[in-house]
C-alpha cells in the first residue's frame, strides 16, 4: 500500500515573488498524525494548500495515496478533507444547512448527507444544536462544525490548518480528543499544522519543524527532544555575603554528567545534564553544603519542543517576536491583501 502523502522537492513561490516553501520533502504514513510546527509565515498553510490542490506547486512531485495530484485533482479532493485556519462557516445559515451544502459540494445525495451528517454531528456533540443558526455558536463549536464538515464525504486523509488557533485551553483539549478519536476509531491519516508546541507534543506521532519554508528537523517528538540533549536543573544559590559561589559552580561543572552551566539574568543557574537530572540533585546539595553555599530553590526541567524549536531555528517561537515582514508574508499567503 502506498503512503498517504509523499512530497518530493516541493517549492512554492507566489506570484509576487515570495518564496513560501523551499524544496521540502517528507512522507506521511497511513493512520499517522503528522504535524507541521512553525511560526506564522513559515510555509505551513501553503504546504497544505498545495497538497489539497488550492495552489499549484512551483516545483516538486506530490502523491496522495500514491496518486499524482497534478494528474487527478478531482480524485484527490474526494480523498481528502480540509478545515482551514480560519473557520469558514456561514453564520446566517443553520448548522445543518452548512453541513448540507458542504455535502452537496462533494456531490453526495440528500440521503447520504442526512445519514452522515447525523453521524458526524453526534460525534462532535453538535447534533442537538443542528437546527440553530450558527451565529449563536461559540468559537469552539464553530471549529467543531468546521472539522465535522470536512468529514462529511468520509475522507481518508484529513488536513487541519491550526485546528485550535485562538481557542481557550479547555476547548483546545476537547478538540484534541476529537482528533485522537478520529485516528483511533477510523484509522484516519491526519496532517495538521500548529504553532503550539504542546499540541504537536500531545497529538503528533511525528513532527516536522518548519521555518522560513524549510524543514529543519523531522522525527518523533521524544526523539527530537532527545537530540538536543538531556535535562536541565535550575538552581538558585544564596551565598552568605551575596557573592557568586564560584567555587561551588566549578565543582558542579566538574561532575561527569554535567555539560555546562548557564547563568540566567534572573539570578538562576541552568545546569545542563546529559540525562537523569534528578540523580544529580543530591550531588549538588553535598557540594553546596561543603562550600557553605545555601540553596534557595532547585527544580528539574525536561526539555520541551519549545527548546527543540529554539535549538533548530535559533529563534524563539513567539508571535509577538515575529517581525513585521513575517506578518506581511503570512498575510500575503492567506490571500488577505492584494499582491498587485
Amino acid at each position: 500500500m502506498p503512503s498517504a502523502i509523499e512530497v518530493y522537492n516541493l517549492t512554492k513561490i507566489y506570484r509576487g515573488g515570495v518564496l513560501a516553501v523551499d524544496d521540502i520533502s517528507f512522507t506521511v504514513e497511513r493512520g499517522e498524525i503528522f504535524g507541521f510546527l512553525g511560526p506564522n509565515g513559515a510555509g505551513k498553510s501553503t504546504t497544505i494548500k498545495v497538497l489539497i490542490g488550492l495552489l499549484k506547486p512551483t516545483k516538486g512531485r506530490l502523491l496522495i495515496n500514491g496518486v499524482d495530484i497534478a494528474k487527478r485533482p478531482g480524485e484527490i479532493k474526494r480523498a481528502t478533507g480540509y478545515a482551514a485556519q480560519e473557520t469558514a462557516i456561514d453564520d446566517r445559515l443553520t448548522c445543518m444547512e452548512n453541513i448540507y451544502l458542504q455535502g452537496r459540494f462533494y456531490h453526495l445525495s440528500k440521503r447520504e448527507i442526512l445519514a452522515r451528517s447525523a453521524e458526524v454531528l453526534k460525534m462532535f456533540d453538535l447534533y442537538d444544536r443542528r437546527n440553530d443558526l450558527t451565529a449563536t455558536f461559540s468559537g469552539g463549536m464553530l471549529k467543531r462544525l468546521d472539522i465535522a464538515e470536512a468529514l462529511i464525504h468520509r475522507p481518508q486523509i484529513l488536513f487541519l490548518d491550526e485546528p485550535t488557533l485562538g481557542l481557550d485551553v479547555q476547548t483546545r483539549k476537547t478538540i484534541w480528543e476529537y482528533i485522537k478519536r478520529l485516528r483511533e476509531e477510523q484509522g484516519m491519516t491526519i496532517f495538521l499544522t500548529t504553532h503550539y508546541m504542546e499540541e504537536a507534543d500531545v497529538l503528533c506521532d511525528r513532527v516536522a519543524i518548519i521555518d522560513r519554508g524549510k524543514i529543519k528537523a523531522l522525527d518523533r517528538p521524544e526523539a527530537l527532544k532527545a537530540q538536543i540533549g538531556g535535562d536541565i536543573v535550575i538552581a538558585r544559590f544564596s551565598a552568605l555575603d551575596g557573592s557568586i559561589p564560584q567555587e561551588a559552580l566549578e565543582a558542579i561543572r566538574g561532575l561527569p554528567q554535567v555539560r555546562g552551566i548557564e547563568p540566567k539574568r534572573d539570578g538562576a543557574y541552568w545546569i545542563v545534564v546529559n540525562q537523569d537530572g534528578d540523580k544529580l540533585i543530591p550531588a549538588i546539595f553535598s557540594i553546596c553544603g561543603q562550600a557553605g553555599v545555601s540553596i534557595e530553590s532547585i527544580s528539574l526541567k525536561k526539555p520541551s519542543l519549545d527548546d527543540v524549536y529554539l535549538h533548530f531555528t535559533g529563534r524563539e517561537m513567539r508571535e509577538e517576536e515575529a517581525s513585521a515582514e513575517a506578518h506581511i508574508r503570512a498575510r500575503i499567503m492567506r490571500g488577505r491583501i492584494r499582491r498587485r
Binding site: 489539497i52 488550492l54 479532493k77 474526494r78 480540509y82 469558514a88 458542504q102 459540494f105 462533494y106
Partner: peptide, 9 residues
C-alpha cells in the same frame, strides 16, 4: 467560504 468552495470538487 470561498476557499472552502474552491477546496471542494
Amino acid at each position: 467560504y470561498l476557499e472552502k468552495l474552491l477546496a471542494a470538487p
